[in-house]
């Protein structure tokens, strides 16, 4: 199925969970935060939150800033 991930179109397996997506992206155990369709997805729900086709996902991290 297709999702929009950080502004780019991407195919991921059907019914993937957030945890599986993070594993696919090689981001496991990285400090990150996520929103799907502009709603925060708490880390505690990563393993059971199922991603739907067409979801818009943002994965963010901390970066230097003023």
């Amino acid at each position: 199925m297709n999702i929009t991930l950080n502004g780019k179109s991407r195919d991921i397996p059907d019914n993937a969970t957030v945890e599986q997506l993070i594993d696919i992206l090689d981001l496991t155990n990285k400090r990150l935060a996520m929103e799907i369709n502009e709603e925060i997805v708490p880390r505690s729900t990563f393993s059971n939150h199922i991603i739907h086709s067409g979801d818009t996902i943002e994965i963010v991290g901390a970066i230097g800033g003023g």
Binding site: D26, K30, R31, A33, I59, V60, G61, A62, I63, G66
Partner: peptide, 30 residues
């Protein structure tokens, strides 16, 4: 100390050091 929130680089430099690893939130108030 201030920090910004930005999209994570996906598929690029996975071992690039992260701000919070070098300058730990345990040592400063972010």
């Amino acid at each position: 100390i201030t920090m910004a929130v930005r999209r994570t680089n996906i598929g690029q430099n996975p071992d690039e050091p992260n701000l919070l690893d070098i300058i730990s939130p345990d040592d400063y108030t972010y």
